[in-house]
Design a protein around this nucleic acid. Structure first.
Lengths: 237, 237
DNA sequence: CGATAGGTTGAGTCGCATCAACCGGGGTGG
DNA sequence: CCACCCCGGTTGATGCGACTCAACCTATCG
């Protein structure tokens, strides 16, 4: 399996063979975590960019009374902090959903490499920009979509994003997330996540079992979700 | 009144006198809009960065069936598009709430100026980063806070942000927003915006009249909102 | 083989939406 | 100059979507 970080970059910019070798070398320093592990940006020094190579993780915030909201789902190829290579870390906590592998690139190495390559620099900024677009779409979801629409939208987005790094097979992709976490992602309760899920199944739009999603009727799913993918991958349209 | 864009930058980086003069010169090309005007990033060529100099505006998205969600409130000193000086525009619409003045800086001019000054570059990135943090806090609000908590949090944030550019007087600041827009911002209905507002008034936490907010009991307001300002202005703590 | 995490289901309640009516003030046109 | 209009704000009634609580079920794993 090719490096998902590189695949994601190649989706929006040109990467030369030499750069690919260098990026491959840089992503060889890794850290393995089990499922449900908390980790902190800056744990391994403040000057490391963490990149998910395999597995799923979340970035989240809690309210003082314990209510939890997941801010972002981190898939293979994603930087944990979209501004990690530039500024101070985001004010969020991190937690793995599955076993994960993190690449740990010293900031200065990544910046050196990027400074010598406008294309790569653009690619990195592009990822930050995409992270912002995903956040904005999430704001729209949480503010205005019904529970079942949020769930449908979530599946559309995650399937689409999985495609970019080659993590789909036909109309299926991994979906290693519990209903409790799903609730935290969608701003609803676990019970409601369960019920919305069942309605999507009853309507024949999806199948979800064994941590694997199959999209049965993608056009109806997208319609229900009011999913407009232009907020993702906009350069490689 | 000093230029709010510069004031906002100075909050996070050093600006030399010469840079200030140059920025002043660059923000002299302006565009005036009335209240409730739609405007589009890229209207005046794709290579212009729009910056709010005076008045309030919103960035928003609509669902195909008309449901509207405001993504961000734009105050004096804010760039309309946090990545405007780098990448393609965000997938959002824009609309003024009041009369506004926009500065229009050609991208290449801003980049030239920034390229010669690491401090200014940092300042610009810092603003993008802050915009991201505000979005994440908004995700938390929409996902997990009750209507009245969202409203309280909104007032805390806007007062705090107004302070940075000197737009507060004592415990008051401008709040030129209708209840309808407030609903669009908070992900609730106009009616609910009205009722939450009245409860804040009845509890003696705020006064709001004539488009002006007065914070009467800031600590109780912050407590209700679970407002933790560390997501804003993190460099100039 | 018991413990536990994750999933499922029902009952009752609550927060908020929706619909609808009404009010006050500032601006406009006759 | 005045009547009208319309926008923004306010209020009540009703219904729905989602929450909470609680029980139970199943698969997995030490």
């Amino acid at each position: 399996m090719t490096n998902p970080f590189i695949r994601k970059l190649e989706n929006v910019c040109q990467i030369s063979d030499e750069q690919r070798r260098e990026l491959d070398r840089l992503t060889r320093v890794v850290r393995h975590l089990g499922p449900r592990d908390e980790f902190v940006e800056g744990d391994d020094g403040p000057h490391v960019v963490n990149i998910v190579l395999s597995g799923w993780a979340i970035r989240y915030r809690d309210l003082p009374d314990g209510r939890r909201q997941v801010i972002a789902i981190l898939l293979p190829g994603d930087m944990c902090d979209p501004f990690g290579f530039l500024l101070r870390p985001v004010k969020c906590s991190f937690r793995s959903l599955t076993k994960i592998t993190l690449a740990q690139i010293p900031v200065h190495k990544l910046r050196e490499l990027a400074d010598g390559s406008p294309g790569l620099t653009d690619g990195l900024w592009w990822q930050s920009h995409e992270a912002g677009e995903i956040q904005r779409e999430k704001i729209l979801s949480l503010g205005r979509r019904l529970a079942i629409e949020r769930l449908a939208h979530f599946f559309c987005e995650l399937f689409w994003r999985s495609e970019v790094t080659g993590h789909t097979e036909g109309s299926s992709c991994d979906m290693p997330i519990t209903q409790e976490n799903l609730g935290h992602v969608l701003g609803i309760s676990t019970v409601q996540a369960n019920r919305s899920l069942q309605e999507l199944r009853e309507r024949g739009l999806i199948r979800l079992a064994d941590k694997r999603l199959t999209v049965i009727d993608s056009s109806m799913l997208a319609k229900l979700a009011m999913f407009d993918p232009t907020y993702l991958r906009r350069r490689a349209a």
